[in-house]
Amino acid sequence: MKNLYFHAPYQTCFRINCDCDEINANLYLHFGKYISENKFPAEYEISITQNGEQYVMESGGTVRETSNPLLEIDRFIFEKTKYDNSVFAIHGAAVEYNGKAYLFSAATTGGKTTLATYLTNRGMGYITDDCILLDRENFCIYPYNTPIHLRPGGVEALKKCGISLRLKEYGSGIYQRFTYNPENCVTQKIPLGKIFFISRNENENKVEKMTTVEKFTELMKSPITLYDTNAEYIRFISRLAVQQCFILKYSDLDFVKEVIRNG
């Protein structure tokens, strides 16, 4: 049984103990530098025991059998994670260019991971591909450099753009993922540049301005976790709503690169 700790900035810490070497190796692929054997005060414990082809997972007081423990660990961590009050956790990807952070907010399968991979391969700094940590006071973005997890469709899209990556594969079927560790990771917090609410399509490349009300509405939908709605939260959202936010529709990844480069 190995004890590993998932310890990421500004969020809940988990202890994962597992008797399967393959699962432990996949945890490193999945969480990257945020998994280690270094001890941290963990709020939750997850225990995985192999039982033939199945795994018994114990977490949060419940026991279940699963054939995909990595997915179940991910789900449990997602459900239980609380973020520090000083940050606003956005479901999105972010890259750095010329010292500023450019955020891409979209739902799952919205294309933000492929976009982040493309842009980091075109010289931009990698901040994160799934959870953006934005400082509520000064709107700086903290780096959260988990390995990028690409779906097969993303890998294909990048190949078509001439990008070939050193990938490690894990999972299978609909849970198959390819991880990639960008070399140019941002390691310090950086000021916010722009926020883009992205949507991928077949034939349109366009940046649209947003009214304050539209920005407000999209920002209220953007968190990766549920926040209590109260006056203080609304005040924060309203401060964020006066930042530069745009709707970005793209069919061409290069278009997004030029949008950022052209300011």
């Binding site: 009214t211 304050t212 920005k215 709605t229 006056a231 609304i234 959202i237 309203s238 401060r239 006066v242």
Partner: peptide, 12 residues
């Protein structure tokens, strides 16, 4: 009443 700017107001 939380006014973001002249064009956007949130009322909670």
């Amino acid at each position: 009443y939380i006014q973001a700017d002249e064009t956007g107001l949130a009322v909670f």
